[in-house]
Design a protein around this nucleic acid. Sequence first.
DNA 1: CGATCACTAAAGTAATTGCCTAACTATTGG
DNA 2: CCAATAGTTAGGCAATTACTTTAGTGATCG
Lengths: 118, 118
Amino acid sequence: MLNQSTGLDALFRGLADPARRAMIERLAQGPMAVSELARPLPMSLPAAMQHLRVLETAGLVRSSKNGRVRTCAIEPQALDLLEQWLSARRSEWQQRLERLDDYVQIIENEGENHDTSE
Amino acid sequence: MLNQSTGLDALFRGLADPARRAMIERLAQGPMAVSELARPLPMSLPAAMQHLRVLETAGLVRSSKNGRVRTCAIEPQALDLLEQWLSARRSEWQQRLERLDDYVQIIENEGENHDTSE
DNA sequence: CGATCACTAAAGTAATTGCCTAACTATTGG
DNA sequence: CCAATAGTTAGGCAATTACTTTAGTGATCG
């Protein structure tokens, strides 16, 4: 545990923007050209291209140019890393909850003074 | 599809920083005080507090203050949204691959001119 | 050949992020 | 009560992000 992987950084960062998520959700329908991909987005083509680059460096999308048109497609295996991380966290967190130590310690702390959060 | 959820933004953004992932991975061992959480991180306490705030607004961590110590704990259900999104993407992408349309269209494009990527 | 199309490159800008230090508040232990 | 502890607030700063517009480059079509 406690891995400082660069891959996860790029992955999460890539998915953290709604325009980029819209792009990859759209690409699930099949490969498409840059301008077609960008058309529904409320921004200029160059802006969409920048998002595309972020997705490509995250490994979420692959593209290749033929003539004057660049065709983009999803890279399904990109989600493997994410899924691994997620299930690792899931199992750790589950173990914790089963032991109940969380609640015990919190209840101890909140003896008289229950000053929840801010 | 094509949901513009604010929750996913905050979630992915929260997880996009290695220091923040280190924090929540550490919290899997059990709840702990802010300064204990921050100790192994290569940054000042206020910086760690800012990361903590990001995690709290993403719903990944919950904290409550008792006396002068604030105890932090993971919020396991925060990952539900992430898992939902992930499996939705998985199934869409899988369907695509099964239909093979991806490969057909890419091969058509790369007829003579195979100018892969940049 | 020349216009158009699809993309790309460049440069600039406003907002956000990730960090710092310094100063402050509120507990708690002796 | 006084000092140390735990956290918080504020201000500042450099880097990054998410755009913009403008100006290209290189196909493709008539």
